[in-house]
Amino acid sequence: MIPGSFDYHAPTTLDDAVALLTEHGGDAKILAGGHSLIPAMRFRLAVPDVLIDINRIPDLEYIREEDGHLVIGGLTRESALEESSLVQEKYPLLADTAKVIADPLVRNLATVGGNLAHADPANDHPATMLAYGASVVAHGPNGARTIAIDDFFVDLFATALERSEILTEIRIPTPPTGSANAGGAYLKMERKVGDYAVSAVAVQLVMDGDTVVSARLGLTNVNPVPMRAIAAEAELIGKELNDEVLEAVGRAAAAECDPSADLRGSVEYKRDLTRVLTKRVIRKAVERAKGGDS
């Protein structure tokens, strides 16, 4: 399968990329890792007239801590997250996520920024970034602006990015350390390596003893738009954790998501799987918060 014809540009500065995007508007697509875009182009689901390859722009691939945040360049490859000792040690939710995105070959090229900007509810980073309460930095003709992740996903494959903006950075608040016990985890059920999730749940929480002080939950591929499980969070926050509370949280998540039936399962199955994964992922995050398993 051969993609449709297009004009290819490989700018070497962010300003040039933004200028090209401004010039071509809706006819252009940004090419980062290409592992969502190129398959879509081969199926002719996407037929852009112009591709703007941002891979030759320097300084868009980095992972570092700065101002109380983990900051990740938009072009950072999934494999770099997987191999980062900083991510493994301090951001287990992100480490869990990076490991289960597609397959190792895809992760060598696929990017964190692309995974978010594509806004596919089946992608894994949206749920994770929702759970972290992350934000993204967008560069456009008027410079940079920061968008809270809660405001980022507006519809199926649609984000708050303007047509002339490029997602250049992801900012994750560093979980509190010291007296507060923070933990996070991502749990994904997939039919086989490389498939999208049947369902997956991301959680980031803070514990005080057995009490959940704060928590955010994100769900993958069980809603038309990447979603936070806000009703489930409400069942969890301020509670002392026991089986009854966990069951209520799981049931809330199952009720508030809106999966569609497909080859991966029926609506009922996906809801119930979401309930089970929610309970399991919270247990895992709590273990980590208590320092049992990182």
Binding site: Y8, A10, L31, G34, H35, I38, P39, L51, D53, N55, S79, P104, L105, V106, N108, L109
Partner: peptide, 19 residues
């Protein structure tokens, strides 16, 4: 279709030659 690109294993069906 896996090949090594700059030392990394990638799917050569999911990258353009121009890249």
């Amino acid at each position: 279709c896996t090949v090594l690109l700059n030392g990394r294993a990638v799917k050569s069906c999911t990258i353009f030659a121009a890249q």
